[in-house]
Design a protein around this nucleic acid. Structure first.
Length: 898
RNA sequence: AGACCCGUAGCUCAGUUGGUUAGAGCGCUACGUUGACAUCGUAGAGGUCAGCGGUUCGAGUCCGCUCGGGUCUACCA
């Protein structure tokens, strides 16, 4: 196979991917004896398209999987997609509205709407699958899963039922985050906070002054809370007051003492609105206070707020009530205030805390058997990370994780939407309730209308994807039995690494730990690797709202190929480190790829020149004891590189590993070795061909996890021409312990330094670069090696002659000298060169002096000095000084030349 | 309000448990390039490691404070 002049990703990538897939390299074998290495792909939205976040995730996971596969593990990467409940349902509803169905829920009904959404998912799921392939993901498509697959549904219901029986799932009235816009509850993690300009009102509230940013909620107060030790209010504690609000209800409030009240804030007295504040609800629970709902699910005031205010929006009511308080002389003061408000991350609309009957998972109930103890879900989550059973990278995220657990409240899992896993609970009348996977026998049962939070099913992802689909379809098989009899689960769980963005540590990673430890008694994964965000050139998170700097991974693949995209996201990648993805960065990676291409070509030609055409490169032996020191040096460099790369991989330092490979490839292989072998005797030695072939194979393997396509192509074209084996199935380079040639290597390292030193002299002395120099070297150490490299040195420094000296250098006028522990080197400036050098220096002297005169003239101009920007003046002054110094040093050099 | 991260060359970032002269890529300057290079190579300039204080024989690295940038969490009404 001949190699094209350039790598054309568009021509080859799709074909290479197909050959990988056809070869069966992606498919893992559950019956294998090899150690398992599993990654569950965080499932992208089934209806979505690939963005940079996915791209970096796929690049890292594919890197890990390819590396472990080559290392000899039974590597399984399970791909899949997520039904993304709220997102998908709202997309389809908007779409239907665009098609003229004003109220899709009302007009189509539940069954039909769900059918339409499923249809939409079916039709768009292919897009993301195709895009996952385009980036080169070597995942096991035979095991692809979807969060609504029947066997996953089975697992969801089974876990729900068991948690219900264990009392970990309960139904009850709680303050939920209600999104009046989407008409559903959202979890604590689906809201974000924003500071918005608001007002802080201080009200006359019976005998108290009470501060609030939401006066309208005071219509539903049932208590006043103060700190129990607050002397100012001691006499009121325990008393009940009636407060008649203007044009509103008369409320009864009890004065309670509560530790959570900050006496320093506002007036130290807090009006308690249990129905519309999480904090106040908690206070109400502690003091057994009643609850009055004055804000409805439509975001408007209810009858309980009084006839006058009922029907107003919250904002209208706030203004109206404040006006009435003012008129009644009850408004003590109003000031501007930056108010933190909660917004739904889907709809971007404010959420309203409301009391509602919901399903919850208790995180504090000690009902989970774990390693011989009974722990709460919270405790298990803490224990597994504390004990090191699960390791989080970067490490500092562990602290964030613990902090989150400490503040975790019961998880509201019911959603008032239709797309998703429906709550597996049936009701009959007031009394009867049934929980299970299938509808109960008998008539009159109706199923709960809510669905489960998407994260509930996602939380089971690492193991529900590994249960056997056929077994799961058999209702006689219990969940423990199902796990026990599923070969994939037995072989591949717990998974090795969970790789995802740190932004979903809580949404998802923590919930997987919570659910999986409970349901399977195992941790879901050993290591959590959290990658950073991909930022644009300005350091902003990439999003569709900044299209001018956002990078579309598909466009990059189209233009540069998947390899360049992957490498630019992996070079410099460290756990949790955000990464700026710019064009410059990608151009740099493109160049490295081109270099790899060209070096591979040169290696191939060079082997051919030594051994003749038609030699099987894959069959060439790895040299054990090379005769020439430069060959030994190269083998030792490779040995050290493989060792370093393994170390970096083990530490999840992928960016660092790439840097090591790149530096060695360019600096050691390309810039020195490939130049050195152009001259005899190296260029004619058979062992050189063997070293070249070994280097070729090794660098291609090392680069493979980063640049899978181009390395696979080069492998097929240049290495495995005969056998046809693919690089993806090759074994990872070994550290050849025998490749230590200390004396030879140190000698060659001295030669490398010698070359650099002489080049330095040439540059320093401003020698005519085309000119050949006369070089004299006295070797102080490794003399034999240095002398054997004579032709290489001569070529690399452009020496016309190289004289080896035995004694110290004489006092040679006009010679420039470099000193090193291993050598002394002198560049003799021949008579002709000295003349040319003098002419050149005189020319330079003239130009510099002319420039200096101009600068000094400018500085002598008083107008310039006093009126111009001081920075400009300073810069001219500095330039003048520089020029003066340059003139002086040129004169010195001319004197030295004699 | 709390927590966490970051501050190192013009730009993007490395810098492993404290240890000689703080590195890379890009950019810049100069020069070269007939025998792999839509180029590539060689050399060079450029840093008070944000600031202050402390621990130490020794601090970019450990500790404290300050300043600046960012992120997350939160029940300050």
């Amino acid at each position: 196979m001949t190699l094209e002049k350039y790598w054309e990703p568009q021509t080859y990538e799709a074909d290479i991917y197909r050959r990988w897939e056809d070869s069966g390299a992606f498919v893992a074998d559950a019956s294998s004896d090899k150690p398992a290495f599993t990654i569950s792909m965080p499932p992208p939205n089934a209806t979505g398209t690939l963005h940079t976040g996915h791209a970096v995730m796929l690049a890292i996971e594919d890197l890990l999987i390819r590396w472990r596969r080559m290392k000899g593990d039974e590597a399984l990467w399970v791909p899949g997609t997520d039904h993304a409940a709220i997102a998908t349902e709202s997309v389809v509803i908007r779409k239907l509205q665009g098609e003229g169905i004003a109220d899709p829920r009302g007009e189509l009904g539940r069954d039909e709407l769900v059918r339409r959404i499923a249809e939409f998912v079916d039709s768009s799921q292919g897009t993301i699958r195709h895009q996952i392939r385009a980036i080169g993901s070597s995942c096991d498509w035979s095991r692809e899963r979807y969060t609504l697959d029947p066997q996953l549904h089975r697992c969801v219901d089974a876990v729900f039922a068991r948690m219900f029986r264990d009392g970990l799932i309960y139904r009850g009235p709680r303050i939920v985050n209600w999104d009046p816009h989407l008409q559903t509850t959202v979890s604590d993690d689906e809201i974000y906070h924003e500071e918005r300009p608001g007002r802080f009102y201080t009200l006359r509230y019976g005998p108290f002054l009470v501060g609030t940013s939401r006066p309208e909620t005071k219509l539903g107060d049932t208590a006043i809370a103060v700190h129990p030790d607050d002397e100012r209010y001691r006499e009121h504690l325990g008393k009940t007051y009636e407060i008649p609000w203007p044009k509103g209800p008369t409320i009864k409030v009890k004065v309670v003492g509560d530790e959570h009240v900050d006496p320093e804030f506002g007036t130290g007295a807090l009006g308690v609105t249990p129905a519309h504040s999480h904090a106040d609800f908690d206070i109400a629970q502690r003091h057994d206070l009643p609850l009055i709902q004055i804000i409805g699910e439509d975001g408007r005031m209810t009858e309980a707020a009084g006839d006058y205010y009922a029907g107003m929006t919250v904002q209208e009511c706030r203004d109206a009530f404040a006006a009435e308080l003012d008129a009644a002389g009850l408004l003590e003061s109003v000031r501007d205030y930056s108010q933190p408000i909660s917004l739904c991350y889907r709809s971007k609309q404010p959420v309203e805390p409301l009391p509602k009957e919901q399903w919850f998972i208790s995180v504090d109930k000690p009902a989970v058997p774990w390693r011989g103890q009974r722990l709460s879900l919270k405790q298990v989550m803490r224990t597994v990370v504390d004990s090191g059973e699960i390791r989080i990278l970067p490490e500092h995220q562990e602290r964030t994780y613990f902090h989150w657990i400490d503040n975790l409240r019961d998880w509201c899992i019911s959603r008032q939407i239709w797309w998703g896993h429906r709550i597996p609970v049936w009701y009959r009348g007031e009394e009867d309730l049934y929980v299970g996977h299938r509808p109960p026998e008998g008539d009159g049962w109706t199923q709960d209308t809510d669905t489960l939070d998407t994260w509930f099913s996602s939380a089971l992802w690492t193991w529900s994807t590994l249960v056997d689909p056929e077994l799961a379809a058999d209702p006689q098989v219990s969940l423990p039995e199902l796990l026990k009899r599923s070969p994939d689960f037995q072989k591949f769980h717990p998974t090795a690494v969970m790789e995802t963005g740190y932004d979903i540590l809580f949404f998802w990673v923590a919930r997987m730990i919570l659910m999986t430890t409970y349901a399977t008694g195992e941790v879901p994964f050993r290591t959590v690797y959290l990658h950073g965000l991909i930022l644009d050139a300005h350091g902003r998170k990439m999003s569709k709202s900044n299209p001018e700097t956002a990078v579309d991974p598909l466009e990059v693949i189209e233009e540069h190929g998947a390899d360049v995209l992957r490498l630019s996201m992996l070079l410099g990648n460290a756990p949790g480190q955000d990464l700026k993805l710019t064009d410059k960065r990608m151009v740099g990676c493109q160049r490295l790829l081109t270099k790899l291409w060209n070096a591979s070509k040169l290696i191939d030609v060079s082997i051919g020149r030594i051994l003749g055409e038609g030699v099987d490169r894959a069959a060439l032996p790895v040299p054990q004891a090379p005769e020439h020191p430069v060959n030994g040096w190269m083998l030792e460099r490779i040995r050290e590189l493989v060792e370093r790369v393994d170390g970096r991989f083990d530490a999840y330092a992928f960016g660092d590993a790439a840097e090591q490979i790149r530096t060695s490839f360019r600096g050691e292989l390309c810039d020195f070795y490939l130049e050195a072998i152009k001259v005899a005797p190296l260029s004619e030695m058979e062992e050189t061909a063997h070293v070249l072939a070994y280097a070729q194979r090794t660098y291609l393997k090392l680069f493979h996890p980063y640049l899978p396509f181009v390395t696979e192509h080069l492998w097929g074209a240049l290495v495995a021409v005969e056998g046809g084996s693919m690089l993806i199935g090759e074994t990872w380079p070994e550290v050849h312990v025998g490749h230590r040639f200390d004396a030879a290597s140190e000698g060659v390292s001295a030669v490398v330094r010698l070359v650099a030193a002489v080049r330095g002299i040439r540059a320093e002395q401003n020698l005519e670069p085309g000119a050949k120099v006369a070089l004299a070297v006295r070797a102080l150490d490794h003399a034999e090696v240095q002398q054997r490299c004579e032709t290489i040195v001569a070529r690399l420094v452009r020496a016309e002659s190289l004289e080896w000296l035995d004694a110290a250098l004489g006092d040679e006028p006009g010679a420039a000298v470099a000193v090193d522990p291993a050598f002394e080197a002198a560049v003799r400036l021949g008579e002709a060169d000295r003349a040319a050098e003098r002419g050149r220096l005189e020319k330079q002297l003239e130009a510099t002096e002319k420039r200096l005169v101009g600068l000094e003239k400018q500085l002598a101009n008083e107008n310039f000095v006093t009126k111009a920007n001081p920075k400009a003046v300073e810069s001219v002054r500095r330039n003048a000084e520089d020029a003066k110094a340059t003139v002086a040093s040129i004169r010195e050099r001319l004197a030295a030349l004699g």
